[in-house]
Write a protein that binds this DNA or RNA. Structure first.
Length: 113
DNA sequence: AATCTGACGGGCA
DNA sequence: GTGCCCGCCAGAT
C-alpha cells in the first residue's frame, strides 16, 4: 500500500479522515471537501477520496459523497448498489446514486464536530 | 525519470 | 446557466 516513508504524513490524514467518517451520525452524510477542509487541506478533496480507496470495513464510506451529494464512489463498493442501499436503509433518501435533501442531512465535521 | 490518472472542489471563460 | 480548466497529494504505469 502506501510508502512507509511518507506514511507518517498520510497516516495522520487517513486516521483523521477515517475517524471523522466513523463519527458521521446515522442517517447523515458528508462530503470529501468538507473532510478535507476540516483536516486543513481544503483543496485536498481528491486526497480524501483516495484515502477512502483503502477504507477499512469499520469506515462507513457510503456516508461520504461528493459536494453534489452524488454517490460518485459507489462503483468502488461491493456491490456498487450497496452504497445507496445502505444509505437508504439508514434513513437517507437516495435516488439514482444521488442523496436527496443533501443540505439537510449534510454533516460538517468542522461545524458539528 | 516523466506523465497521467484519480471515490473532488472551486474558480473562471 | 453551462462548460472547461486548474489546483491538491499520492500512486500507478
Amino acid at each position: 500500500m502506501i510508502k512507509q516513508k511518507n506514511a507518517d504524513k498520510q497516516q495522520n490524514f487517513f486516521a483523521d479522515v477515517y475517524e471523522v467518517v466513523k463519527l458521521i451520525p446515522k442517517g447523515r452524510v458528508t462530503s470529501y471537501g468538507a473532510i478535507a477542509h476540516y483536516l486543513g487541506a481544503k483543496s485536498g478533496a481528491r486526497m480524501v477520496g483516495w484515502a477512502m480507496h483503502g477504507c477499512p470495513k469499520n469506515v462507513p464510506a457510503h456516508r461520504v459523497v461528493n459536494s453534489q451529494g452524488l454517490l460518485t464512489g459507489k462503483v468502488h463498493f461491493n456491490p456498487p448498489s450497496a452504497m445507496g442501499a445502505k444509505l437508504k436503509k439508514e434513513g437517507v433518501r437516495v435516488a439514482k446514486d444521488k442523496v436527496q435533501l443533501f443540505a439537510e442531512i449534510f454533516w460538517d465535521p468542522s461545524k458539528e464536530l
